[in-house]
Design a protein around this nucleic acid. Sequence first.
DNA 1: GTCTGGCACTCCGACCGTGCGAGTGCCAGC
DNA 2: GCTGGCACTCGCACGGTCGGAGTGCCAGAC
Lengths: 340, 340
Amino acid sequence: MAHDERRLEVLRAIVQDYVSTNDPVGSKALADRHDLGVSPATIRNDMAVLEEQGYITQPHTSAGRVPTDKGYRLFVDRLSAVKPLSMAERRAIERFLDGAVDLHDVLGRTVRLLAQLTRQVAVVQYPTLSRSAVRHLEVVQVSASRLMLVLITDTGRVEQRVVDCPADIDAGAVAELRTLLNSAFDGVKLSEAGGKVPDLLETAPAHLRGLVATVSATLLETLVEPGEDRLVIGGTANLARGSALDFQGTVSPLLEALEEQVVVLRLISEVDAGTVLVRIGEENAHEALTGASLVTVGYGSPERALGGLGIVGPTRMDYPTNMAAVRAVARYVGQLLAES
Amino acid sequence: MAHDERRLEVLRAIVQDYVSTNDPVGSKALADRHDLGVSPATIRNDMAVLEEQGYITQPHTSAGRVPTDKGYRLFVDRLSAVKPLSMAERRAIERFLDGAVDLHDVLGRTVRLLAQLTRQVAVVQYPTLSRSAVRHLEVVQVSASRLMLVLITDTGRVEQRVVDCPADIDAGAVAELRTLLNSAFDGVKLSEAGGKVPDLLETAPAHLRGLVATVSATLLETLVEPGEDRLVIGGTANLARGSALDFQGTVSPLLEALEEQVVVLRLISEVDAGTVLVRIGEENAHEALTGASLVTVGYGSPERALGGLGIVGPTRMDYPTNMAAVRAVARYVGQLLAES
DNA sequence: GTCTGGCACTCCGACCGTGCGAGTGCCAGC
DNA sequence: GCTGGCACTCGCACGGTCGGAGTGCCAGAC
């Protein structure tokens, strides 16, 4: 009935006002700033119901209302329209990202761009190794018994590892090894590289077999298994700026969690390309992220997300705008990486 | 005379007490905690002189004294003994850094280690490209007319660039190009790589000349010229923690300056390996760094610093301990990188 | 039944005045 | 040249007051 309808309208108004003013919002202010067509007294009744249902709360008696996590959730799911980016913002994205020279540069620019657009902390994950395929494997001899492996993936990531070999290696063997590895792994996804090893060992000429075993063991251990995924973080200054009030007192635990990377990494990698995922406050379970929201999305082609990116900020954030920004940036980055 | 002597002793005591308590220190407290052999009244006279000379100041009448930048400077230059690291700290350094798998990992661990030891923001510069030498140049064909160059330096850095070529390239040419580039640049310092190009162009077979020109132009432009140097930053949570009081109100400009990188990069690259450099407060000129001190040192062999590392914190920091930590870490990292 | 205006009540936060304590500068005496 | 004593200053913590914003409830209007 029209009853419930209006109540949701009230909730939406509360969220909007609170996000923009940071003051608990009262019935009078609501009636003034939004034309809900009813008097403050009626709004008070609605607010009482919303509070009972757990969507809003008051910091103390005789203060206005503030949305709860549950309130934000409802707002994000049902009450907010996606806010299209302005032309200026669209152009800013292109201007910012074009002219990047390599993957590191692209992701560095992306994180700065996101931080600037949303005025929040931005987080970008390097393309997941396990979902990447081998474009080239280079073997360089760095000393008599040490080799450096350089892995180049189709997503532009470059990873290197030094391998200590039990015996000295001659230059010819290095060249053979290179050819062997490349023909075995070229185009193979890293997640499936493990399966190729037995074949490889079998077909390898006897005198190389030990070497191949050592090298492929290192490859699997350090590159495939641990999901060795990197994160770029930027815009932490935004945390210190306005949000000092949002995170009661100190932002330090949050900064620690961000530097830790592992927590955020786990959250950010659970994404699909295309659908923006919002996690609000306590939904994050992890202690340091209580009071914080994440807005994340995958980038890359829809079928195959290369990695995730997003923002971290106080639960009191402008979700529609930030969701739009995150989505637009991800889309553009995805295109950019697909080209190269 | 013994007069001046004692006055300096008073200054040292003030710095030490202020650093550890964060309270302006008064004559009485000084007399109690340090045996200077004189009464509070005498100390008061000394303090009046020190204030006149600009080494200390009082936040307001009837408060204790606080060191000025000039006071810290004198303390660092003449009054502080280098504090040897504890055995536990020494072992922590080894435990922390051993087992790193590549350069990225080494520097990442270093920055975390430094941040933990000093409880300040830590900063580590990647080995300067211009002072590095080429260990290997790899050329990989990524599409008909595009090549990826991968540069591996003797310091373990790996940089890649994609080069668009005007015409399609066949696989044979790629192999030739690889051999050509490596024989021309192997072991050459990047700062001197520019000089090799004319030679290279001359000796190159005619059918490769255009390709070589394009490729070496990209190499020089993107890798040699701009001093494209990276920075790893960590421990920013330390800023938010205690130092909220030190940087009046907000740490946000400082965080911005750190993310900007360019300012810090300039400061950190002016270092010698071996001698720890301390910059205090206003000595940093740059606005955001007023109120902050940098403790930096170069790492690598004494004759040839690979890069710089150090910490950024409030001027009110424990200089002797932090200087010792920075020096010890730099030394260890230098060894580690020399080995590989 | 639903909305509205009015009213009494609550309670936070800003404001203000006071008193305490820490610290200083100065001075006379050793 | 050092010391103890003394008067003075000043920031800050403490406690009480007051105003305003906001609420809940109720009786009456539509």
